[in-house]
Structure formats: structure tokens, C-alpha cells
Design a protein around this nucleic acid. Structure first.
Lengths: 187, 187
DNA sequence: ACGATATGAATGAATG
DNA sequence: CATTCATTCATATCGT
């Protein structure tokens, strides 16, 4: 499970095989870094740190090894995503009913890590009712309008449209239900 | 970055994925499409194409593979956003001096970043950032915001702006389906 | 060595 | 425009 990252330090660990993607080796967190990250995640409840937080965290973790902002960013992203992903599977088996809708839980460790093939129902459609405790803790982040020290004045949100002098006014329906059937073909 | 695994102008491109599920669900840009998009982004400075531009770009890219207007829309949105975001948490923490001037390490974070002085080349120790920065910011955007999100004044979109294909303008960020195509997730 | 798994990285899509 | 979610790729590490 836990990689025995002892002296990696993520330094030049190239095997010489660097092609298209991901040129160099990827960041290999040290135990200390992992510990701190976990602490922030579990003890402090940080799930999606803001830019400012990422900077600070990165600065702190740098003491223990090479690290960059994006590493921290991805770490939280992945950790949260996988945390939730696992939880999604477990929540499913408790609800097992007459009609099974399972989508091949992680137990099937045979055919690679292929997602539910020929699953009866698409698990997508987001139907998770997981927790939503995020960006609540932090320390003092969340600036009014972004941390750029800029007053972004009013109307900034979406919603505006009608930039088309040539095309008939589009009806700007909010998203909320993405573009479904749309029989009209006014485009 | 570019998976570079496909070149088939065909629609469904199954990289090494065998077995069922060819409905990718998600648009997988071909190398040609990527190239053109990046060219538009970097060489032409297009960051937020208008509806018309999107349609035109989409039409052009369709020659190289299946694509829809929203794909182009999202592509620019994401590319721009990530560009900015990356820079955000890669911010300089090079100010650690004997005298802490800004960046209060304590609590109050206020506006840590000093607007207007964000150097572009700051990835010092990182081995990253090199590959992504292909060209300079051609940029030809009017109104602020083209830079690093600074003063953007109030009227960002005054009623109708020149929708000239040569003069990229802002506005039009909505998710109406003015693009066509339809994920149609029959729900 | 090889296969499986864990996890970093990247990006399309969507929401606020 | 910022932020977040989901999916997928790539690779490091461990198991056998």
C-alpha cells in the first residue's frame, strides 16, 4: 500500500526513459510530506485548499523535499476523489435490493482495472449524496473576489449573452440541466 | 499532455482500449485538433472565442475528427483557466527576507500577492512549466483581464462588443447550447 | 519478470 | 472566470 518512500526525495530518478508524457519522474512525496498532508486533510478538514493555502502548504512541505504547488494541488484533488470513490462503492452494497445495480466493485481483481463493463446502469449521472464539507475550515482564505487584490466590481457572473448581432437572440437558460433533447434547431 | 495516440480522423478512437464501450462519452481531441487549438490560443491570442468564432473553429476542426461546439468552448475555458491557476499557486514565495514585508505567514492573509508584479518566469526549481509554455502570450485582448486578472473595470461587456473574428472579445460564457450537438444523456 | 494496485498527473465537463 | 468533479493515463512500488 504505502510506498516505502525512504530516500527517494524525488531527485533525479530517471531511468532514462522519458518520452511523450510526463517527461521526468513524477513527484514522490516523502513520509513527512505525506504525514503533513494527511494531517491537513483529516485533522484540519482541508479538502480543496485555495491558491493561497496551496502556496503555504507547499512552502512548508518544501522543507522535507522537493515539491511544487501543483503537487499539493493534485494531491488533494486525488485524495478527495478517491476517498469519495471508495465510499461510493461501499454505500452501494448496503442498499442492495432486489434489483442489483452494482457496477463491479473493486473486489473483482482480475480483469485489469476496467470500469464496469456492460454495466446495467451508468453510474455516472452523479447521484452521490456525500458530504459537502469543504472550504469551510481553512484559516482565512477565501478572499472576497479572488486573492488578487482586485475589486472585481459587479457583474462578473455568467448569464450575460446576446453578443450576437447576427443571430437571433438566444435564450439563455441556465445550465442546471445541461443541454438535453432540445428539439428546436434554432442554431 | 498530448496522448498522441490517435490520428485517425475517424470518430471513435480507441487507443489501446479493447472491449466494448466505444462511446467515449467524452471528447478526445486528436493531435491535429490540439495543434490547431493551441495555435489559435497562442499565436492568435484567442482566449475566449465568441459564439461565432466557436462555430467556425468547430467547423474547421471537424475535419480532423468528431467535435462539437461545446468542446471548443470548454477547451478554451479550461486552457485559460489552468494557465492562470497554475500561476496562482506557483506564486513566488521568494520574498522570505529578514524583514517580512508582505505575505504574513501568520494568519491574516489579506492580499498576499502583489498585483502587477507577477513575473512570468518564476518556475525556477521546477522542472515543469517548460513544456507548457510554447509561445509567448500573443494576446490582443482588449479590456483588462488579459494580463493577470487585474483591474477589469465594471463593464466587461457593454452590450455588444465587436464580434469581429479578428478581434477576440470577452463575454459569452454561458452554457446554453448555442453550439449544437447534444450529449443527450437520456435520463 | 510480471501483474496488480496505488497514486501522481492531465484534462474534459460542469457548476457557482 | 474560479473551482470542483470525474475519468483516464502513466508510472512507482509491491506482491507473487
Amino acid at each position: 500500500m504505502e510506498p516505502n518512500e525512504d530516500s527517494s526525495s524525488g531527485s533525479t530518478n530517471n531511468k532514462g526513459n522519458f518520452l511523450c508524457r510526463q517527461s521526468s519522474s513524477r513527484w514522490t512525496p516523502t513520509t513527512d510530506q505525506i504525514r503533513i498532508l494527511r494531517d491537513l486533510y483529516y485533522n484540519n478538514g482541508i479538502r480543496s485548499p485555495s491558491a493561497e493555502q496551496i502556496q503555504r502548504i507547499t512552502a512548508r512541505l518544501r522543507q522535507y523535499g522537493k515539491i511544487e504547488g501543483k503537487n499539493v494541488f493534485y494531491w488533494f484533488q486525488n485524495h478527495k476523489a478517491r476517498d469519495r470513490q471508495k465510499k461510493r462503492f461501499t454505500a452501494d452494497m448496503t442498499m442492495q435490493r432486489g434489483a442489483y445495480t452494482s457496477i463491479s466493485p473493486g473486489v473483482c481483481s482480475s480483469s485489469s482495472s476496467s470500469p464496469g463493463v456492460l454495466g446495467v446502469g451508468q453510474m455516472g449521472t452523479s447521484g452521490y449524496g456525500s458530504v459537502l464539507m469543504e472550504k469551510s475550515f481553512g484559516d482565512c482564505s477565501i478572499s472576497g473576489g479572488g486573492g488578487n487584490g482586485v475589486a472585481r466590481s459587479i457583474s462578473n457572473n455568467l448569464g450575460y449573452v446576446g453578443v450576437d448581432p447576427y443571430c437571433p437572440t438566444y435564450s439563455i437558460y441556465d445550465k442546471r440541466r445541461l443541454f438535453n433533447g432540445a428539439p428546436s434547431k434554432e442554431d
